[in-house]
């Protein structure tokens, strides 16, 4: 299952051997043409975005699909119009610090929830689920007021700090991973005189590296893609904008631009995510399958 996105044995069609081979071929063609259509459907929007990104102003306002000339300088123009490097830095600061904070705070908590038996453990786990499911808009007013009273709105701190005190989704995910390690391994370490801390860092963590990578990736991706949080806390201050906020405001801010530059900016925002994915496919998939199943 770890290599789910690369290749894995297909579920062979449930056709008994005595049936004709022709039925199998038909089946093969049908399945693969549907898959091909799906593949196109999922990819074409992004292709159109790229093609429009390299069109001229005038052509971007026409209904032509293929660029007459390739204006790769549009990507440069985006950087000239907007301080994209600042936004990129902000996005990176938010995502990297949040991920680091999540790991520091959520690994111990997940371990405690997965491996300790205590009164209130059930309640704590339910609270994790409740926090995970809570729409962020519910708590926005008091949290905004809280950060505003500390004059910290307009900075990235309100976005980052919560990750240093435990992120519900990551705790949930990590707990699922920790549960897969047989208790015997941990007990063996305890018998050798390891403290709980050593059990966690010497035994459990090395064994669940893939799970930790998945949790880190999801946090990174979630914060990278986050729009509500940055809009709420740093919307007021352009120097603190993340890429998402900047992209959403791109057309409003650069009122003389056309669709081509907007699409060029869109391309620039989604390229890093795609690259990250190509490098870390396996971790993504592992994490995904663990959110849904496996106890």
């Amino acid at each position: 299952m770890t290599a789910l996105l690369e290749s894995s044995p297909p579920v062979t069609p449930a056709v008994p051997r005595r049936r004709r081979n022709g039925r199998r071929t038909l089946d093969f063609i049908a399945v693969h043409s549907v898959a091909l259509a799906l593949g196109l459907m999922f990819t074409l929007p992004l292709v159109f975005v790229f093609l429009t990104a390299v069109m001229s102003d005038q052509q971007a306002l026409s209904s032509e699909l293929w660029p007459r000339e390739w204006h790769f300088e549009n990507f440069v123009a985006v950087f000239q119009k907007a301080p994209m490097f600042t936004y990129l830095t902000n996005s990176l600061v938010y995502s990297v610090l949040a991920t680091a904070g999540m790991l520091l705070s959520s690994i111990p908590a997940a371990y405690a929830l997965a491996r300790f038996r205590w009164r209130g453990g059930n309640l704590a786990f339910m609270l994790v689920i409740a926090a995970m499911m809570l729409p962020p808009q519910v708590t926005a007013v008091p949290l905004y007021s809280m950060w505003a009273s500390g004059h910290l709105t307009g900075t990235l701190w309100p976005l980052i700090v919560p990750y240093f005190v435990g992120d519900a989704f990551s705790i949930f995910l990590l707990r699922q991973f920790f549960l897969t390690i047989p208790e015997d391994y941990l007990d063996a370490a305890r018998m050798d005189g390891c403290s709980e801390f050593q059990v966690l860092y010497r035994v459990l963590l090395p064994m669940t590296k893939p799970g930790i990578a998945a949790a880190a990736l999801f946090t990174f991706l979630y914060t990278w893609n986050d729009y509500f949080g940055p809009l709420l806390y740093v919307g007021e201050r352009q120097e603190s904008w993340t890429l998402s906020v900047a992209l959403a405001s791109f057309r409003g801010m650069h009122r003389t631009t056309q669709w081509n530059l907007t699409m060029a900016a869109t391309t620039l925002v989604l390229v890093p995510v795609v690259v990250l994915f190509l490098f870390a496919q396996k971790s993504f998939v592992r994490g995904l399958t663990f959110t849904g199943i496996k106890g």
Partner: peptide, 17 residues
């Protein structure tokens, strides 16, 4: 593998984009 990547990729695109 290719089809799976193609179907999965859009879910990574930032919502604003």
């Amino acid at each position: 593998g290719l089809f799976r990547v193609l179907c999965y990729l859009p879910s990574l695109v930032p919502p604003v984009a």
